[in-house]
C-alpha cells in the first residue's frame, strides 16, 4: 500500500502508553491523532475538528496536555505520549475520573468524553483542588455538544472529592 501513497514516506517510532510502536511508510504530513487512530490501533482519541478547536483528541505529551491533531506525528519521536487508553489501571478498571463521568451523567454520546477524561486527569494532577472557575477554564478547550457541561462539571467535582478523601 505504501508505494501508492502520494508524498514522502517515512519510518519512525513512537512511545505511547509506555510501549514503543513502529510506524512504517507513513506520509510525512500525518498528525499524531491520525497515527494513533489509524496506524497504532488506538482510536480512543477522537477526530472532531483537526484544528485544535475541540479537544476531542487531547493526549499528554511529555506530561503536557495537547491536541494530538496539532502534533506532527513524526516530530513526536522520543516523546512520552499518554492517551485515554493509557489512563486506567487495567482491563476491567476505571480511573477515578472515568468512574465519576459515568456516575454523574457526564457521558451522553461520548465522543468528547475521552478528551475530557484526559484533560481532567491533567487538571487534577496539577491542581488537586480547583475552584469551579478553574475547572471551567481548564476544560474550556474541550467542546461538548450534548451535556451543556453541567454533569461534566459535577463529575470533576466528584473526582476531586474522591481524591480529597
Amino acid at each position: 500500500m505504501g508505494a501508492d501513497i502520494v508524498g514522502e514516506l517515512i519510518d519512525y517510532q513512537l512511545r505511547v502508553n509506555g510501549h514503543e510502536h513502529d510506524v512504517a511508510e507513513a506520509w510525512l504530513g500525518e498528525n499524531l491523532l491520525y497515527v494513533l487512530r489509524e496506524r497504532l490501533g488506538l482510536p480512543g482519541s477522537k477526530n472532531a475538528c483537526e484544528q485544535g478547536e475541540c479537544g476531542s483528541c487531547s493526549v499528554l505529551m511529555d506530561g503536557k496536555l495537547v491536541c494530538s491533531c496539532m502534533v506532527l506525528a513524526a516530530s513526536a519521536v522520543g516523546a512520552d505520549i499518554v492517551t485515554v487508553e493509557g489512563l486506567s489501571a487495567g482491563e476491567n478498571e476505571l480511573s477515578d475520573v472515568q468512574a465519576a463521568f459515568l456516575a454523574e451523567g457526564g457521558v451522553q454520546c461520548g465522543f468528547c468524553t475521552p478528551g475530557f477524561v484526559v484533560s481532567v486527569h491533567d487538571l487534577l494532577e496539577h491542581n488537586p483542588d480547583p475552584t469551579e472557575l478553574e475547572v471551567r477554564e481548564a476544560v474550556s478547550g474541550n467542546l461538548c455538544r450534548c451535556t451543556g457541561y453541567g454533569r461534566i462539571l459535577a463529575a470533576v467535582r466528584a473526582a476531586q472529592e474522591t481524591r480529597q478523601e
Binding site: 508524498g7 514522502e8 510525512l28 504530513g29 498528525n31 483537526e50 484544528q51 485544535g52 491536541c67 491533531c69 496539532m70 502534533v71 506532527l72 513524526a74 516530530s75 522520543g78
Partner: peptide, 27 residues
C-alpha cells in the same frame, strides 16, 4: 519550520500546506 504546530498543522491537516520536509524546533 515547525514550532508548536498550532497553526502549521491546521494547514497540513486541511491540505493547504504540503511540506516536502520539516525542521521541528521542539527540542
Amino acid at each position: 519550520l515547525l514550532a508548536g504546530g498550532t497553526d502549521f498543522m491546521v494547514e497540513v491537516n486541511f491540505a493547504l500546506r504540503r511540506p516536502p520536509a520539516v525542521v521541528c524546533l521542539r527540542k
